[in-house]
């Protein structure tokens, strides 16, 4: 019989009882204890911590088995319209007959419940899991805003009050895992994750969601925003996550009175004379890439969407934007959705 692998780790008990190989002693090397290492021991003695974490992941995988594409909409920057774009892209794709759901992953600032009109939605127990609430036009939406009134904040019970910076993010991801594993996602063409702001959060979600997820990043024309988004793209690229492209939101201000798009940010440059195939305004918007020191984003631009006060009003009231009206916003959203689908194929 040959020597067992890692035999030096399996010293005879009599030898190990001395806890030393005899090489130590005054002035000598530190005694080397002969004993098993962490990886020699199967299981964890009964606490099943790792097993439970593995089981959580298995429940998520099982729950998302029918989801064809998983796309996270993030930015890094807050206030750029991630949630609005997520919902409006979902609306466009739903109108095309696709099966769509949104998971509002911004647990601390959930906005999808109000915008999608599911603030008072009832979660119904299904045969095995919870049934996902749906909007009037058939988009499944999970948002903490359906569970917590806007006047209240998400809170967790804790044994370590005052030290939430040490555990809160972990708990939020555990909550995300619980939601993914506990709701029926069914057969979906697209599950959109509406991510919270923060470049580091975007990366954490990327790590959590794994390589199956793709990313769309949202910016506004300001150099500050593009800089933050550039950092998010750089961080995602380091981890080989797939970035489908970015959307430039608020690329101008759409005035319905004069039916024109006006500059909203200094770097926004509507290009008159470049007729958009689907608008009658005789203009289109181009993303403000790399102008005047504005950082390049090095991923495809899926489109530019002007700010429309009417859209903002409808989002506040939970009314889906009437698509197909030929307005610049509607046309831009159609273009973004189309390019998103093309990038997924």
């Amino acid at each position: 019989m040959g020597a067992p692998p890692f035999g030096w780790l399996r010293a005879p008990r009599a030898e190990s009882r001395g806890a030393s190989d005899g090489a130590g002693g005054p002035g000598g090397e530190a005694p080397r204890i002969r004993m098993k290492s962490y990886y020699d021991i199967v299981g964890d003695g009964g606490s099943r911590i790792l097993e439970q974490v593995t089981e959580q992941r298995a429940r998520i995988t099982d729950g998302l088995a029918g989801v064809r594409h998983l796309v996270a909409v993030g930015s890094g920057k807050g206030g750029v319209g991630k949630s609005t774009l997520t919902l409006q892209i979902a609306n466009v794709l739903r109108a095309r007959g696709l099966r769509i759901a949104i998971l509002d992953a911004d647990f601390n600032g959930p906005s999808q419940a109000r915008m999608a009109g599911v603030q008072g939605a009832v979660v119904v127990p299904g045969s095995r899991k919870a049934v996902l609430p749906r909007t009037r036009n058939g988009i499944g939406v999970f948002s903490m805003g359906s569970l917590i009134p806007e006047s209240e904040a998400l809170d967790f019970d804790s044994t370590a009050r005052g030290e939430s910076h040490t555990w809160r993010a972990t708990k939020e991801f555990t909550l995300l895992a619980e939601i993914l594993g506990a709701f029926e996602w069914g057969e979906l063409d697209l599950l959109l994750f509406d991510l919270p702001p923060g470049a580091e959060r975007t990366v954490q979600y990327a790590d959590f969601l794994g390589p199956h997820a793709s990313f769309v990043l949202v910016t506004i024309p300001s150099e500050v925003s593009r800089g933050v988004v550039a950092r998010s793209i750089a961080a995602l690229s380091k981890r080989s996550h797939r970035v489908l492209g970015y959307v430039e939101n608020m690329s101008g201000y759409y005035c319905r009175d004069c039916n024109a798009i006006k500059p909203l940010f200094p770097s926004t440059r509507p290009h008159r004379g470049l007729a958009h195939p689907s608008t009658s305004l005789g203009m289109t918007l181009s993303p403000s890439k790399g102008q005047g020191g504005s950082p390049e984003l090095h991923v495809d631009c899926l489109g530019s969407v002007p700010f429309d006060p009417e859209l903002a009003r409808q989002c506040d009231q939970g009314i889906p934007l009437a698509g197909g009206d030929g307005s610049p916003v509607s046309v831009a959203l159609e273009q973004v959705a189309q390019r998103l689908l093309e990038s997924l194929d």
């Binding site: 099943r48 911590i49 439970q52 974490v53 959580q56 804790s158 044994t159 370590a160 030290e163 040490t166 555990w167 809160r168 972990t170 708990k171 555990t174 909550l175 895992a177 619980e178």
Partner: peptide, 8 residues
């Protein structure tokens, strides 16, 4: 708290 945050 850290272990409980794992949901186990």
């Amino acid at each position: 708290q850290v272990v409980q945050s794992l949901g186990v």
